[in-house]
Simulated assay, not measured.
Amino acid sequence: MLMIQVLLGGITRLTGSGLSITEWAPIMGAVPPLNHTQWEHAFHLYQQTPQYRLINGDFSLGDFKFIFFWEWFHRLWARLIGVVFLAGFVIFLLQRRFNSFMVRPMIILFLLGALQGLIGWVMVKSGLVGDNTSVNPVKLTIHFMAAMVLICYTFWFALMLLVKPGQYTTAPALRRFTVLIICLLCLQLVYGGFMAGLHAALSAHTWPDINGMAVPDTLFRQSPAWSNFVQNPIMVQFIHRGLAYLLALLILWWWIRALRTAGSPLFRQTRWLPILAVFLQVTLGVLTVVNSAVQIPLLLGVLHQFVAMLLLVILFGMLFLLRSR
């Protein structure tokens, strides 16, 4: 459900739907407009936003209903996650299925989920002020990375319950190498968030060059210089591509080293997953960029995001199986 929620967020972003609901009503907001009057009111609120005034001024009520649906469904799914979590937690607690070790991580999971909802609203508010026609790229990235933390924490906790000690593999050096790769991947995900927030794929839709150049001459076109690393679409895409190549090479080397490691049966069965995921991810990234001449393709963009999540989860799984002693 968490991963589907992130994908719904990607669809919401790519369809430009994220600013269609201008109010945060955690409970009553679960009910969409039910009649024409309510739809007109919701549309009127959207018409006050910079996005409508500067970009979507020709929108009809039907156009508004389309973008409203994706943002509403994204928020509804978040509410459903909360309901599923709380219902399961209460039922299992009453049935005494939890031991003392399990309660604290469950509480942390709930708090992380609530924090994610708050971060999401702060992000949306950033696109409703001034002349902003989309959310702030940095706040979008924080929202995305908070979702990755929540997913990885959930997965790690599940592995603690599912994996037996005899399935671990002792390989200190390979474990340290895995930590390094995960750190680089997190940086790559941050730049993926910047790519999304800036719609940077539209700025350079050629490959392997970037608008005909190996090293673009507009990497430092903004001032101050540091802002290029966050706000310059060409610089952001240049870094995102470079990190992708580096990660692919490092994970290839990781796989070779993993093949030479006499690990547990579970490790041997799963050690091919990182190399498969990273090369699939690079392929999807290239396809997304070269097909973004007019707009970023929805299916490719969402698949690219999905495989990025899979790669992160897979590497966390490998890290869990690898032990220093």
Score class of each variant (00 low, 15 high):
S20D: 01
I21E: 00
T22V: 15
T22I: 10
T22C: 07
T22L: 09
T22R: 02
E23C: 00
W24H: 10
A25H: 12
A25G: 00
I27K: 08
I27P: 05
A30S: 13
V31L: 15
P32N: 12
P32S: 10
P33G: 09
L34S: 12
L34E: 07
N35V: 12
H36Q: 15
T37L: 13
T37K: 14
Q38N: 11
Q38I: 08
Q38S: 13
Q38C: 07
W39E: 04
W39H: 01
E40K: 15
E40H: 11
H41P: 00
H41L: 11
H41Q: 12
H41T: 13
H41M: 09
H41V: 12
F43L: 08
L45W: 02
Q47T: 11
Q48N: 13
Q48R: 14
T49E: 06
T49L: 07
T49K: 02
P50N: 06
P50W: 02
Q51P: 04
Q51F: 00
L54I: 14
N56Y: 06
F59S: 08
S60R: 06
S60W: 03
S60D: 01
G62N: 14
G62F: 10
G62E: 15
D63F: 09
D63P: 04
F64V: 11
F64P: 01
F64G: 03
K65R: 13
F66N: 10
F66W: 14
F66A: 10
I67T: 06
I67R: 01
F68P: 03
F68S: 04
F69A: 09
F69V: 04
F69H: 00
F69L: 12
E71Q: 14
E71K: 05
E71T: 05
E71Y: 04
W72T: 00
F73C: 07
F73L: 15
F73T: 12
F73P: 03
F73H: 03
F73E: 09
H74G: 05
H74I: 02
W77A: 11
W77C: 05
W77R: 01
W77V: 12
A78E: 01
A78G: 15
R79G: 09
R79Y: 05
R79W: 07
I81D: 01
I81S: 03
I81K: 00
V83W: 11
V83K: 03
V84G: 10
V84R: 04
V84A: 15
F85N: 02
F85M: 05
F85C: 04
L86R: 06
L86Q: 07
A87P: 00
A87C: 12
G88M: 11
G88L: 12
F89W: 07
F89D: 04
V90F: 14
V90N: 07
V90W: 10
L94R: 11
Q95L: 15
R96W: 07
R96F: 05
R97N: 13
R97I: 04
R97W: 09
R97V: 05
